[in-house]
Protein backbone atom coordinates (compact mmCIF):
# COMPACT_ATOMS: atom_id res chain seq x y z
CA UNK A 1 0.00 0.00 0.00
CA UNK A 2 1.47 3.33 -0.96
CA UNK A 3 1.34 5.90 1.73
CA UNK A 4 0.46 9.56 1.45
CA UNK A 5 3.15 12.18 1.81
CA UNK A 6 1.95 15.19 3.77
CA UNK A 7 3.75 18.47 4.36
CA UNK A 8 2.42 20.64 7.11
CA UNK A 9 3.39 23.13 9.79
CA UNK A 10 3.22 21.91 13.36
CA UNK A 11 4.00 24.33 16.18
CA UNK A 12 5.78 26.61 13.69
CA UNK A 13 8.00 23.83 12.38
CA UNK A 14 7.62 22.58 8.84
CA UNK A 15 6.99 18.88 9.19
CA UNK A 16 6.39 16.10 6.75
CA UNK A 17 5.23 12.57 7.24
CA UNK A 18 3.91 9.52 5.47
CA UNK A 19 0.51 8.25 6.48
CA UNK A 20 -2.10 5.75 5.46
CA UNK A 21 -5.52 7.01 4.42
CA UNK A 22 -7.22 5.64 7.51
CA UNK A 23 -4.78 7.18 9.95
CA UNK A 24 -6.04 10.14 11.87
CA UNK A 25 -4.09 13.27 12.62
CA UNK A 26 -3.98 12.05 16.23
CA UNK A 27 -2.45 8.72 15.14
CA UNK A 28 0.28 10.56 13.29
CA UNK A 29 0.96 13.07 16.06
CA UNK A 30 1.28 10.34 18.66
CA UNK A 31 2.66 7.34 16.79
CA UNK A 32 4.81 8.92 14.09
CA UNK A 33 5.84 12.32 15.44
CA UNK A 34 6.12 11.51 19.16
CA UNK A 35 3.84 14.41 20.03
CA UNK A 36 2.05 12.45 22.74
CA UNK A 37 0.69 15.48 24.58
CA UNK A 38 -2.53 15.09 22.60
CA UNK A 39 -4.39 12.18 24.19
CA UNK A 40 -6.85 9.64 22.89
CA UNK A 41 -9.70 9.37 25.37
CA UNK A 42 -12.45 8.17 23.07
CA UNK A 43 -11.55 8.25 19.38
CA UNK A 44 -14.99 9.61 18.54
CA UNK A 45 -14.84 13.34 19.23
CA UNK A 46 -16.70 13.06 22.52
CA UNK A 47 -13.96 13.85 25.07
CA UNK A 48 -11.73 16.55 23.60
CA UNK A 49 -8.47 15.15 25.01
CA UNK A 50 -6.98 15.21 21.50
CA UNK A 51 -7.88 18.85 20.83
CA UNK A 52 -5.52 20.72 18.50
CA UNK A 53 -5.82 23.89 16.45
CA UNK A 54 -5.89 23.60 12.66
CA UNK A 55 -5.71 26.86 10.73
CA UNK A 56 -6.94 28.71 13.79
CA UNK A 57 -9.89 26.44 14.55
CA UNK A 58 -10.24 23.89 17.31
CA UNK A 59 -10.65 20.36 16.10
CA UNK A 60 -10.53 16.91 17.60
CA UNK A 61 -7.46 15.42 15.98
CA UNK A 62 -9.09 11.99 16.24
CA UNK A 63 -11.78 13.20 13.84
CA UNK A 64 -9.43 14.47 11.14
CA UNK A 65 -7.54 12.30 8.72
CA UNK A 66 -3.81 12.86 8.74
CA UNK A 67 -3.95 13.19 4.97
CA UNK A 68 -6.20 16.26 5.33
CA UNK A 69 -3.41 18.20 7.00
CA UNK A 70 -1.51 18.93 3.78
CA UNK A 71 -0.57 22.61 3.80
CA UNK A 72 -2.38 23.30 7.06
CA UNK A 73 -1.02 24.97 10.16
CA UNK A 74 -1.37 22.91 13.30
CA UNK A 75 -0.85 23.86 16.93
CA UNK A 76 -0.64 21.28 19.69
CA UNK A 77 -0.04 21.46 23.43
CA UNK A 78 3.68 21.01 22.79
CA UNK A 79 3.76 24.41 21.11
CA UNK A 80 1.94 26.32 23.82
CA UNK A 81 4.81 27.33 26.09
CA UNK A 82 7.50 29.59 24.67
CA UNK A 83 10.71 27.79 25.53
CA UNK A 84 10.85 27.64 29.30
CA UNK A 85 8.20 30.36 29.68
CA UNK A 86 4.79 28.89 30.34
CA UNK A 87 1.77 30.38 28.63
CA UNK A 88 -0.29 32.39 31.16
CA UNK A 89 -3.02 29.74 31.03
CA UNK A 90 -0.54 27.02 31.89
CA UNK A 91 0.72 29.08 34.81
CA UNK A 92 -2.81 29.78 36.07
CA UNK A 93 -3.74 26.11 35.80
CA UNK A 94 -0.84 25.33 38.13
CA UNK A 95 -1.68 28.14 40.55
CA UNK A 96 -5.35 27.19 40.71
CA UNK A 97 -4.68 23.45 40.97
CA UNK A 98 -6.91 23.13 37.94
CA UNK A 99 -5.74 19.60 37.23
CA UNK A 100 -5.77 16.37 39.16
CA UNK A 101 -4.78 13.46 36.94
CA UNK A 102 -3.90 15.81 34.10
CA UNK A 103 -4.99 13.65 31.16
CA UNK A 104 -7.59 16.16 29.96
CA UNK A 105 -5.35 19.14 30.68
CA UNK A 106 -3.57 19.45 27.30
CA UNK A 107 -6.86 19.46 25.40
CA UNK A 108 -8.46 21.91 27.79
CA UNK A 109 -5.50 24.28 27.63
CA UNK A 110 -5.49 24.27 23.84
CA UNK A 111 -9.24 24.90 23.80
CA UNK A 112 -9.06 27.63 26.45
CA UNK A 113 -6.26 29.43 24.64
CA UNK A 114 -8.33 29.48 21.46
CA UNK A 115 -11.28 30.90 23.41
CA UNK A 116 -9.30 33.73 24.95
CA UNK A 117 -7.83 34.63 21.57
CA UNK A 118 -11.37 35.05 20.25
CA UNK A 119 -13.01 36.40 23.37
CA UNK A 120 -10.72 38.01 25.96
CA UNK A 121 -13.63 38.68 28.31
CA UNK A 122 -15.76 35.55 28.46
CA UNK A 123 -18.50 35.03 31.02
CA UNK A 124 -18.43 31.93 33.20
CA UNK A 125 -21.23 30.52 31.08
CA UNK A 126 -19.30 31.18 27.86
CA UNK A 127 -16.25 29.40 29.25
CA UNK A 128 -18.35 26.44 30.35
CA UNK A 129 -20.06 26.06 26.97
CA UNK A 130 -16.83 26.58 25.02
CA UNK A 131 -15.20 23.80 27.05
CA UNK A 132 -18.23 21.49 27.04
CA UNK A 133 -16.45 19.25 24.55
CA UNK A 134 -13.54 18.69 26.91
CA UNK A 135 -14.45 16.08 29.48
CA UNK A 136 -12.78 16.15 32.86
CA UNK A 137 -13.69 13.42 35.32
CA UNK A 138 -11.54 14.55 38.26
CA UNK A 139 -12.20 18.18 39.07
CA UNK A 140 -15.88 18.92 38.60
CA UNK A 141 -14.54 21.75 36.37
CA UNK A 142 -14.66 24.35 39.17
CA UNK A 143 -10.95 25.11 39.38
CA UNK A 144 -10.55 24.83 35.60
CA UNK A 145 -13.19 27.50 35.01
CA UNK A 146 -11.63 29.72 37.68
CA UNK A 147 -8.18 29.35 36.11
CA UNK A 148 -9.47 30.34 32.68
CA UNK A 149 -11.45 33.31 34.06
CA UNK A 150 -8.48 34.44 36.10
CA UNK A 151 -6.16 34.23 33.10
CA UNK A 152 -8.59 36.34 31.09
CA UNK A 153 -8.87 38.93 33.86
CA UNK A 154 -5.10 39.07 34.26
CA UNK A 155 -4.48 39.40 30.55
CA UNK A 156 -7.02 42.22 30.32
CA UNK A 157 -5.44 43.91 33.30
CA UNK A 158 -2.01 43.72 31.71
CA UNK A 159 -3.22 45.02 28.34
Amino acid sequence: MSRIHVTTTINNDETDYLCETDETLLDVLRDHLDLTGSKEGCGSGDCGACTVVVDGRLVCSCLMLAAEAEGRTIETIEGMAGGDALHPLQQKFLEHAALQCGICTPGILVAAKNLLERNPNPSEEEVRYWLAGNLCRCTGYDKIIRAVMDTAANTRGAA
Partner: peptide, 21 residues
Protein backbone atom coordinates in the same frame (compact mmCIF):
# COMPACT_ATOMS: atom_id res chain seq x y z
CA UNK B 1 -0.29 25.69 52.41
CA UNK B 2 -1.04 25.57 48.69
CA UNK B 3 2.20 25.18 46.72
CA UNK B 4 2.28 24.32 43.02
CA UNK B 5 2.45 20.59 42.48
CA UNK B 6 5.82 19.15 41.47
CA UNK B 7 4.48 17.25 38.46
CA UNK B 8 2.59 20.30 37.26
CA UNK B 9 4.80 21.62 34.49
CA UNK B 10 5.02 18.24 32.79
CA UNK B 11 1.26 17.99 32.88
CA UNK B 12 0.48 21.44 31.45
CA UNK B 13 3.04 21.10 28.67
CA UNK B 14 2.11 17.61 27.46
CA UNK B 15 5.38 16.05 28.56
CA UNK B 16 3.95 13.80 31.26
CA UNK B 17 3.98 10.19 30.13
CA UNK B 18 0.77 8.25 30.62
CA UNK B 19 0.03 4.62 29.87
CA UNK B 20 -0.12 4.96 26.09
CA UNK B 21 2.67 7.52 25.76
Amino acid sequence: TRPIRPDGIDKVTGKARYGAD
